[in-house]
Nucleic acid binder design. Structure first.
Lengths: 191, 191
DNA sequence: CAAAAGAGTTGAACTTGTTCAACTCGGGTA
DNA sequence: TACCCGAGTTGAACAAGTTCAACTCTTTTG
């Protein structure tokens, strides 16, 4: 059952009664996306927050020159959201696209706000999730300042071997913040 | 009264009764730090979380070569913490140093955990604070990928004119992730 | 199956940023 | 006052990463 992955994810963060767990999960609705389909496009308002059950997504922005900058990839067991647009109902600066056929569990903004209001433990859950997220974003920024593109590349493939295999080099380059031509040269140099 | 700044900061995020606000604030104890004094040093465990009433701090890491990488500056009305070390009681990778004589309000880990447990609204407060923090770290990473050092420099001084005046160029360079020599050349080029 | 589009590679010229070393300048401290 | 230290500047040589263009090789799609 696909909800098991969500339940296990929540329990990694907090201890919860089975009843509470069931109740939280009941607000999430399953959805399928085909490869290349978008869950959110830049400029529109984010209406859904998701959790990936299977498949993989990339979350990226597009600048005027058409350069893609990838914020993160979300494979199985990852949360998927544009927090800013979802919470504040402002136009999103992000695109969320399936990079392979995928299954997600989605919650609407209204339901999420209702959960926050009715279950304090959900506040705690997301306080912890965001707290952990903040730490990893801080670390990523330091790596970006401190490490060369080559070091960042090897850090990435060692840290996320499972995701790497699903991605094109162009997508990885967009995550590392380098051109795909340069990534190609990095890979060649280390053969 | 110095607690007013903290109260106003909290109220920017959530609506709270005066009684709750007073109760939360009662856990925070004032402290003074002299210029160059450390609130936390790399390798030790973070025991206190702070809120800046006056002055300014820098939060940075030091690598083997002695390069300083600044995660952020915290002036009046900013929160100050190493979330990872504080929450998980692991040795910190960060240094927190006053860059001028400063006043802070500090809360211990025990008191913070007690607040989380006894007041669900505190969970909400920090859920919102971390949520906003996450958004700005994501944006900063995109700026780092997309913008040149020169663009990042002008973005910084335009966004934080008040803090800029307190900082040396070396400290700003550490925040931007460039050498201070290169920052000097950037400033010269735009005269 | 054929055509087209996208992914990856390579080279050459270029831009951005680093490193190291030498120098200047102003402010605190003995 | 004299000194020294840290901040900032500058130049030259170098390293890291980009851009553009040309080419190959898969993959997708009609």
């Amino acid at each position: 059952m696909s909800y098991d992955i969500l339940k296990q994810n929540i329990q990694k963060h907090i201890n919860l009664s089975t009843a509470d767990l069931e109740l939280i999960c009941s607000y999430f609705k399953p959805a399928s996306l085909k490869k290349k389909e978008f869950l959110l496009t830049q400029g529109s308002v984010c209406k859904l927050e998701g959790f990936v059950i299977d498949g993989c997504f990339r979350v990226f922005t597009l600048d005027k020159k058409g350069n893609e900058n990838t914020l993160y990839f979300a494979a199985k067991d990852w949360w998927l959201m544009d927090i800013d647009s979802f919470m504040n109902q402002v136009p999103s600066g992000l695109n969320i696209q399936a990079i392979e056929d995928s299954e997600v569990l989605l919650i609407s903004r209204r339901d999420k706000l209702a959960l926050y209001d009715s279950m304090p433990v959900v506040e705690k859950l997301f306080r912890i999730i965001f707290q952990k997220g903040l730490v990893s974003w801080q670390r990523r920024l330091v790596r970006n300042h401190r490490f060369t593109a080559k070091e960042r590349y090897f850090h990435f493939i060692e840290t996320y071997p499972g995701i790497t295999s699903k991605l094109t080099d162009k997508q990885i380059a967009g995550y590392l913040g380098i051109s795909h031509e340069f990534l190609s040269k990095i890979k060649k140099s280390e053969k």
